[in-house]
Design a binder for these strands. Structure first.
Lengths: 343, 343
DNA sequence: CTGTTAGCGCCTTCAC
DNA sequence: GTGAAGGCGCTAACAG
C-alpha cells in the first residue's frame, strides 16, 4: 500500500533545497534522483535519503515545460452516457494508466463547434496524443490537417472521418450483419427487414450494403420496402416500425440500427399487442449490457467490442507517440460478432 | 465556427519571434497580448496583428509552470461504466468546460491501492482541484489529510468519506425510502422487505435506518427477517431474494439496494415462476435509464440525480479554488425523489 | 564522477 | 509607454 506523507510546510521542496542541504549542486541531485549511472552510489543514496526526508516531489509542470511533453492524452467522443463510449474510455484509461499517462476527456455532444472547441483546449493543454471518435454532425474534416500540422498524433476510433492517411480503429459491421441474417434464415425467416439510420451516415450505407449482400448470400431477393430509415429520435424509431408493420407481408425479423432504436421499436411492437420473439424477432447492433435482464430481449446482438476498440486505439496511439518515424497510416478493423442472448 | 489555421512550420511561434519582427521587447509583446493597459493602442494592434499572422499560440505548459496552475481538475470515481458516474462526470465536464478547465479522470475500480495511485498521479499532474467519489473498499481515509497538506481542494460526491471538515455533495436516501414505503403502503402492502447492501457500508446503514423509520411512520412493526443483505455480486443478490422467498409470510413488496441488485433479483423472481408487479413488487435506488423500456419495470425508482450532484460538486469546487479564504466545510444534500415508472 | 552554465517560454518587478 | 533583467524548477551540454 502506498504511503502518504503529510507535509507541514506549504512550499514544496525543490531540487535546490536538497542540493543546499547536501552542499552539492542541483544537477547532481537531479541526476541522482533520475538514477543517472554516472553518479556515485553513496551520493545517490544520500540524495534519495534527503529527498525522502524533505518529502520531495518533482514539479511536473516544470518537467512538462522543459521536456515539451505532458504525459497526457486527450480523448474526444460524443457522449459518455452512451455505454459504448463509457466502456471504450474505460479501457483507454487503463492503457494510459499503465503507462503513467493521464487522460483528459471532452464530450462533443455531437456538436461540431463544441468538438472544435474541445480540440482547441486539448491542443492548448499540449496533450501528447489524441483519441477521437467524431460526432454525428461533423462533416468538416479540416481539423485533421490542423492537428497534423500541430504535430499531435491522432487515432480515430469507432466513428472515423473519411480522410486518407489517418490511423483508424473501427468495427466491421458487415460480418455481424451476415451472421444475423444467417441466424434469421436458419430459424426459418424470409421476410427480413432493416431499420436503418439516417441515409447520409456512412454506417447506414455500410449496413444497407451488408444487408443486401447478406440476403443475396441466402438467395433472398432484396425488396426496397423492407428497408426503412429513422432519424434516431424516438418519434423516428416509432415511425419506422409503424411503416414496417403496415406492409402487406409483414416482416417477421428485423435488424435494427442500434440498441436504442431497438428499445423504442420493441416497446412500440408490444404496445400494438404483438408478441416479441414470436410475432416478430429482432437483432440489433451494440449489445446493450442490460439485454440479459430483459424478459424478451432481441434474439441476438451484433457486438462491436467498445472495450477492445478503445484498448487497441490507445495502444496504437502510444506506438505512434513513441515511434521515431511514424508507421504507415493504418486501419484496424475488428470484425463484429453476433452474440446470442441466453435469457 | 472556429477557424483552424494550418501552420507549415513545426516550431510553434513564441513571444520572442513576434518581438523580433516588430523590433520591440518580448515584455511588450507579452503585455500587449494580455491586454495590459499601459501599452499603446497602436503597439497592441500591431502585436496582435503579427501574432495572428504567425499563428501564435501561447505555450500553456510554460504558463502553467509559471503560474503554478494547470487549469485542470481531477475526477476520481469507481467506474465509468456505471451510468450514475457517466452521467455525473458528464455534467462535471460541462461545468469545467465552461470555465476553460479540462478534466482528468481516473477509475479506482473500487480498488483502494489503485485509488491511491490515481491520487498520486493527479497530484503529480498538479491538478488545481479534485472531485472524488470513493471506492467501496476504501476504509483508510488518510489521503484526505494528505490532499489537504498538498493544498489541493477536494469536493467529495456521492460516496463520501466519513471525515469531518470536508466538502461533500450527497443525496439523502431517506426521503426516497419514505416515499417508497408510503407508496407501497398506499397500494395495500404490509409485508415490505429490504434487500440491503453490505453491512459495513454507510449507505446500507442509512437505508436500514430510513427503512425502519419509514415503517414506523406507517405504523408497521419492524421485523428482522425482512431485511437481508447482499454483497452485491450476482450470487449474493440471488441468495438474498431466495432467502426472502422462503419466508413463511413472503413479502409482497421489496425495496432493494440499487438497480443492479434489482435486475438480478427480478430475474430470479421470474425464473421461479412468480409474476413481477403482481406477486411481488419492487422499488430500487438509482433509476437505471432503461427501466422505461422494460415490460415489467420496478414500480418506481428512487432517483439520486447524478447529474445534479456532479454539477453541484463541480461548482462548489470552483468556488473553493477561486476563494481567497476557504468557506466553511459543507455538506450539500440532495433529497432523493421517487420517480414513478410509466411503462 | 561532479559542478557550472545556460535556457525552456513566459511574466513581472524595476527601471527609464 | 517601453525595455532590461531575473526567475519559476528542472535538465543537459560542456567542462573539468
Amino acid at each position: 500500500m502506498l504511503n502518504f506523507h503529510v507535509m507541514k510546510e506549504g512550499k514544496p521542496t525543490t531540487i535546490k533545497e536538497i542540493a543546499k542541504r547536501l552542499k552539492i549542486s542541483p544537477s547532481t541531485v537531479s541526476r541522482a534522483l533520475n538514477g543517472h549511472p554516472s553518479i556515485g552510489l553513496v551520493t545517490t543514496m544520500r540524495v534519495k535519503q534527503v529527498a525522502e526526508e524533505l518529502n520531495y516531489e518533482p514539479n511536473q509542470t516544470a518537467i512538462f515545460f522543459k521536456q515539451r511533453k505532458t504525459f497526457t492524452i486527450g480523448v474526444v467522443l460524443p457522449r459518455l452516457s452512451e455505454p459504448f463510449f463509457a466502456e471504450a474510455i474505460s479501457e483507454i484509461e487503463n492503457v494510459a494508466n499503465e503507462r503513467k499517462y493521464t487522460v483528459i476527456m471532452g464530450q462533443s455532444l455531437d456538436d461540431q463547434d463544441r468538438e472544435r472547441r474541445i480540440l482547441q483546449t486539448l491542443k492548448t493543454h499540449r496533450v501528447d496524443g489524441l483519441l477521437m471518435s467524431i460526432g454525428k454532425n461533423t462533416h468538416d474534416y479540416s481539423f485533421v490537417e490542423w492537428l497534423e500540422s500541430a504535430n499531435i498524433p491522432v487515432v480515430f476510433f469507432d466513428c472515423v472521418p473519411d480522410v486518407d492517411h489517418t490511423y483508424q480503429v473501427v468495427s466491421d459491421l458487415t460480418a455481424g450483419m451476415f451472421e444475423a441474417i444467417d441466424l434469421f434464415v436458419s430459424c426459418g425467416h424470409r421476410a427480413i427487414s432493416l431499420i436503418n439510420g439516417p441515409v447520409k451516415r456512412p454506417e447506414s450505407r455500410e449496413r444497407e450494403t451488408a444487408y443486401r449482400k447478406g440476403l443475396e448470400r441466402q438467395g433472398i431477393s432484396f425488396e426496397q420496402a423492407y428497408v426503412v430509415h429513422t432519424d434516431l429520435t424516438q418519434q423516428g424509431n416509432e415511425a419506422a416500425i409503424a411503416q414496417l408493420l403496415t406492409l402487406p407481408d409483414r416482416p417477421s425479423a428485423v435488424v435494427s440500427f442500434n440498441d436504442y432504436v431497438t428499445l423504442d421499436v420493441m416497446k412500440a411492437v408490444r404496445q400494438r399487442g404483438l408478441t416479441l420473439n414470436q410475432d416478430i424477432h429482432f437483432i440489433s447492433y451494440a449489445n446493450y449490457p442490460l439485454w440479459k435482464y430483459m424478459e424478451n430481449p432481441p434474439m441476438a446482438s451484433i457486438e462491436q467490442f467498445p472495450g477492445k476498440q478503445g484498448k487497441k486505439a490507445a495502444e496504437l496511439l502510444f506506438e505512434l507517440m513513441e515511434a521515431k518515424d511514424k508507421p504507415q497510416p493504418s486501419k484496424t478493423v475488428f470484425k463484429s460478432r453476433l452474440i446470442h442472448q441466453n435469457s
